[in-house]
């Protein structure tokens, strides 16, 4: 099977978020970029496991500028066979990103397109469904298990308050959540091999975004925490009822 794994770059999970230019731009100064955890831990690793079990190739694709290359190489070090970077920079929205990915996915003839359930920076959960619609393929979202036999996949996905088990024939698009695989740490051999694996840069088709970000805002600072004695939990109950009005 040919697997295409969509990988995005996000600020490291401990990044303190701030903004510049009158709060219209994310302050990227000193930001350490990492692969989006869902893409790396679940989508990529599960694709690699399936390839190791059944054969095939794993290609990773990223839409972004040349500064992303070093981080993309990490996906190659973890085990992807090759990478495609669609050389688009600037603020692209999920539709613009999805359009670029769909074009590459279509020409490459992949059996499975895997994504993370969301980017931890945008939290849009948009790109996967859009790619599926653009390719007119089934979209299985929030999958926590994926098995493939022949060209048929059996998938477990999260639904409200539980799980659903379904089957679907390739090709399809799947977004991956926790449970699907265990994160892998690249070893020395992988890191060395990654240096010579192909990272192909392709020209974007240039689909325009349909949204713009006007400005950003940080949540209001929390007022100081009110401490209550462990011997007087009744006071907490009263505060939750009378002051906070949540019970």
């Amino acid at each position: 099977m040919k697997f295409l794994v969509c990988i995005s770059l996000v600020p490291d999970t401990t990044t303190k978020i701030s903004f510049v230019d009158n709060d219209t731009k994310f302050n990227t100064d000193k930001v350490q970029w990492i692969l989006n955890p869902y893409d790396e831990w679940y989508a990529l690793v599960r694709a690699l496991e399936l390839k190791e079990a059944n054969g095939g190739t794993v290609t990773v694709v990223n839409v972004g500028g040349a500064a992303n290359d070093a981080t993309i190489r990490k996906a190659l070090a973890i085990g992807a066979d090759d990478a495609i970077r669609i050389d688009a920079s600037g603020d692209l929205d999920s539709y613009a990103i999805a359009s670029e990915i769909a074009a590459v996915a279509k020409s490459g003839g992949y059996d499975l397109v895997l994504l993370g359930k969301e980017t931890i920076s945008d939290n849009g959960s948009n790109v996967g469904g859009m790619v599926a619609e653009l390719l007119d393929l089934p979209f299985i979202s929030y999958a926590s298990k994926l098995d493939v036999a022949g060209s048929t996949a059996t998938i477990e996905r999260d639904i409200e308050g539980g799980e659903e088990i379904l089957s679907v024939d390739a090709p399809f698009v799947i977004s991956c959540a926790k449970g699907m695989a265990e994160a892998r740490i690249p070893n020395m051999k992988g890191i060395m091999a990654a240096k010579t694996k192909p990272l192909n840069v392709v020209t974007p088709q240039g689909t325009a975004s349909l949204t713009t970000t006007v400005k950003y805002e940080l949540p209001p600072a929390k007022s100081a925490c009110k401490m209550i004695s462990p011997d007087n939990v009744g006071e907490l109950v009263q505060l939750l009822h009378n002051e906070a009005k949540v019970i």
Partner: peptide
């Protein structure tokens, strides 16, 4: 213009749809 969560709840973005 709509306010939305961003950066996993660490901030909000105000977005506008142009279509």
């Amino acid at each position: 213009v709509v306010k939305k969560t961003a950066f996993s709840g660490k901030a909000f973005a105000f977005m506008k749809i142009t279509s």
